[in-house]
């Protein structure tokens, strides 16, 4: 990079972007642009017209998913761990898509529950056992139940216009596709890190790796209540404030009676 040429901010950004693009290579870059556009178009269609139309379509989808899993198992010969990880990740993404495309709010909430529970499975695979259990209890237990309760309390009866008609879906899908494409691009541009186990000497101090996999709940607790004690206190205070605030906000005022 020639630093003497830079004399304005836009030029600087341009030079940096150019060097990053050079590192990435033109075929990769155009492939990513195509991926973005295709994703935006397909996403817009799914969002506007829905994915699931009938029970036959659900059956076809499940059969296709099973066939794809079988094909991967036969051809790629993955380890069981990897296989389960991809199954959970695919199920979570499918739950997210179902959450987005379902028009009935209750179905959308069930899609959300699927996404969160499958995401919990991924966390289990990543040896974050306590985080996985807590997520399952808090999200899939408390949050979903309360949201479903409010949904049934506030909306009895048929679909309303604001469930059917979305708020500018085209712009939202374009923004989402651009965001996803950018993240994928950036992750591909990052080189292999030295912070993998065994290479701690050459790694930067913040990304230095420890000795063992972080799978012990006891050590997680010790880390939380020694290094991050202030954060835990802060989170407790936040919970208290949120409780008081929600009671104050939801209270039926006397004038309205």
């Amino acid at each position: 990079m020639d630093l003497s040429k830079i004399n304005s901010l836009t030029q600087c950004v341009h030079v940096i972007a150019q060097s990053e693009l050079d590192k990435l290579g033109v075929p990769n870059w155009s492939l990513m642009a195509f991926f973005c556009i295709a994703l935006a178009g397909f996403g817009y269609y799914c969002l506007q017209y829905g994915v699931v139309k009938s029970n036959a379509m659900i059956t076809v989808g499940i059969v296709a998913l099973l066939a794809a899993g079988l094909l991967v198992a036969v051809t790629q010969n993955p380890s069981l761990e990897l296989y389960v990880f991809y199954a959970f990740a695919g199920l979570a993404t499918a739950g997210g898509v179902a959450f987005l495309t379902a028009r009935q709010p209750v179905y959308a909430a069930l899609g959300f529950a699927t996404a969160i529970l499958s995401g919990t499975g991924v966390l289990f695979m990543e040896s974050a056992h306590f985080v996985a259990a807590a997520t399952m209890i808090v999200y899939a237990g408390a949050t979903i139940i309360i949201f479903l309760f409010v949904l049934m309390f506030a909306q009895q009866g048929d679909l309303t216009t604001y469930d059917v008609k979305l708020n500018n879906p085209a712009i939202a899908t374009v923004i989402g596709a651009i965001l996803l494409g950018t993240i994928v691009l950036c992750v591909q541009a990052v080189p292999e890190s030295d912070a993998v186990a065994g290479n701690a000497a050459t790694a930067r101090p913040l990304s230095q790796s420890g000795e063992a996999e972080p799978s012990s709940t006891a050590r997680l607790g010790r880390s939380m209540f020694t290094e991050y004690l202030f954060m835990v206190e802060l989170a407790g205070t936040l919970l208290l404030v949120a409780t008081i605030g929600s009671i104050a906000v939801a209270q039926r005022s006397l004038e309205a009676e």
Binding site: T143, S193, A235, L238, A242, A250
Partner: peptide, 27 residues
């Protein structure tokens, strides 16, 4: 998991707390 330490998991638990607070206020 990549860095073999517990910082990320602690932050995930904090995010969980914030999400619970947010759900209460939102409802």
């Amino acid at each position: 998991k990549q860095h073999h330490n517990y910082q990320g998991q602690v932050l995930a638990i904090i995010i969980l707390t914030v999400a619970a607070c947010e759900a209460a206020i939102a409802l």
